[in-house]
Amino acid sequence: MKKLLIALMLVCMIFSIAGCAKEEPSPATSGKSAGISGEVNKQEAEDIKVKLYFPNNDASEMVAVEKTVKVTGTTKYKAAIEALLAGTTDKKLTNVIPKKTKLLGAEVVKDTIKLNFSKELIDDFNGGSTGEEMLVGSIVNTMTEFPEIKKVHILVEGKTVDTIKGHMDTSVPLTRMKELLK
């Protein structure tokens, strides 16, 4: 009987101490990269269809343009952005991304793609709320056409940027900008 009571008391003490112990941070959710899930293993060229988003000339809406791009030893994401940077010849649409901008890299982590652009993305851009929305929107909406991509983080020269030209907060990954589509 005594032994049982002592055991009970011990359990009680352990409980009371455990109940008080500072809450341990839950084990960090593994931040490991989903890696190059978009990498194409085959070396031979593969044609895929992508949807690229361009604003119309009066910047009242974004229009999807379908294009077939070749994916050779590169990811489909890179191929789509390269096609976006190359622009459209449609006279009703505007190439909003500054011409000299280059894509320096693309990396997928879980559902987020990090796109690293050259400095011309900001330096050669004139600004304006609408301009900024359309610039960011064309990139974000083109990428989120891939169902596995939910967010886009824009980097310039490898660094997070607070804003493109003083309006949008681009320091965080952005979700699809549906408001720009009609």
């Binding site: 604003p55 000339n57 009066d58 009242s60 505007t94 304006g128 609408t130």
Partner: peptide, 15 residues
């Protein structure tokens, strides 16, 4: 207070 801007000179209006 801001002024808007866009790549194409066609864009116009107040928002």
């Amino acid at each position: 207070i801001h002024c808007n801007a866009f790549t194409s000179p066609e864009a116009n209006g107040t928002g």
